[in-house]
Structure formats: structure tokens, C-alpha cells
Amino acid sequence: MTSSPLVPEISLNPLPQSDGSCQYTCPTSRTTILTSVNGPLEVRPKDELPNHATIEVIVKPGIGVAGVRETRLSSLIHSTLKSLILTNHHPRTLIQVVAQIVQAEDHTSLPLLLTPLLNCTILSLLIAGIPMRTVGWSVHLAVLQHPPKTVKTAEGQVFRLGRGGEDEMETEESEQIVVRNPNGEILGQAESSHTVTFSKEGEVLLIESMECSQGSGGQSADGQGWDISDFLRLAEEGKRICCEEGVEIIREALADRKVF
């Protein structure tokens, strides 16, 4: 696989014993996730749902034991999968997803981990043959001030947001750039981070955006944040990436396996 900054490295079924597994490496931050999907399995009576499958998501940290951050990641993935998986096809069963963080620049950073976790999980669900309503793809976008100070960005990773023909805004527009798949270094300089997940049909599955500018020296954080219209344009761009490129990546990755 080519080392493009936009195409992740995907290895399918690295764990032959599981129903479906996938290893996913983000091309820039080198965040590596290994997921395994098993199901439909027998469900504990406590968790059994009469006409739905129970989805269980476990996120295992790269370092140390799981804490609240991992629980939150699990719950975010769980809520996303709930709207993707056709749970009524396998009632009274368990679909178990285990995601292991193999390598990460920052093991506590939610934005850096969420996109690889989601993409990797969706790929392994496809391989495991779990019936899904549609597929989703996640992309992580970071907004930076225009001349990025010292960061190195690869070609194609950076783009600007077009504004609908308002000339006086042109100057303002040039101040900010958007970086796809930022690594930890870029994220450290970013003003805001946006993880957007869309389904193939363009439905909004998950949005996790947050202000992440560095507060240094206890300075006041007033005036941070973004305008909602800026966000909407960013989200539209994210939607385009997810629906076009993301779906293409899934298609290519699974081409040999005749899933599509």
C-alpha cells in the first residue's frame, strides 16, 4: 500500500481466530488500532434484549489499565454502531467488538484515537459479516492558523474552506487552514479539532468537535471557539471526504474479499 498521507494502512483479518478483525494505521499520526469482532454469540441473560442483538464494545488502552477515557470511547463507538448494525436480525445474541490501541502518540487524546477506532471497527464488522444498514467513515480535521508555525504537512493533507462568494471575507479566510488526519504535533498547534463521521448516504453519525487551542501561562481563554457557520462548512467538507474517499477506501480494502 502506498504511503499517501490520506490513505490509511489497512490489514484485514490479522487475527484468524476471530470472526472479523482489522488492523488500521493512520498514515500521519501512526496511531495503530487492532479490532476484533465476534458475533453473533451467546449473550449473558442479564444483557439479553428480546428482539435486538446486544452490542458490546471494549476499548483496551495501549498503556496501563482502562480508565474513564476508554469507557467514554467505548460508549461513543457503541452509540454509533447501534445506528449502523441491524440489530433486529440477530435478536437475543451478542455482537462483541474489542478494540486494542496498539500504538498512539497520545494515549489519552480523544480526537487522535476516535477516527482510527471507528474506521477500524467498521471494517472489521464488514469482514465479520455482521448485517449493517449502511457503512460509515470517520475523518479527523484540525483547524490551524494559516502559516503553520513549524509543522510539516504532506501534500493533499491541507485545504482551505471556500466561502460562498463573499469577497470581503477573503482576507479572513486565508487565516485558517484545515489539516486532514493531523498528527499529535499538528494537533498541538491546532485551534480546534473536529472528528466527523458520516454514513455512505451522508447521514451524520457522530460529531466530536472541540476547541483545543493551547492555553499557555494561564491566559484567559475568552474569545476562543468558532462560529457555527464555519463549522457547517467544515462539516460539509467532511461529509464529502467521508462519502467519496472514505467509501472508496473501504471498497478498495475489501475488493478482494467480495464484500461489496
Partner: peptide, 25 residues
């Protein structure tokens, strides 16, 4: 001065539209 958004979290489901997010702000 307009409302500045600092964090958006949208989870679960697939029905919400981007325009609805705007009205929510």
C-alpha cells in the same frame, strides 16, 4: 458578537441534519 461554539458532541442515531445543529445554537 455572535455565539461562539466551543464543543459539539453528537452521538447515536443518524437523523439529525447539519441545519438543525445551527438552529440548536
Amino acid at each position: 458578537l455572535r455565539t461562539r461554539v466551543e464543543k459539539i458532541e453528537k452521538r447515536g442515531g443518524c437523523k439529525i441534519g447539519l441545519r438543525q445543529i445551527e438552529s440548536c445554537t
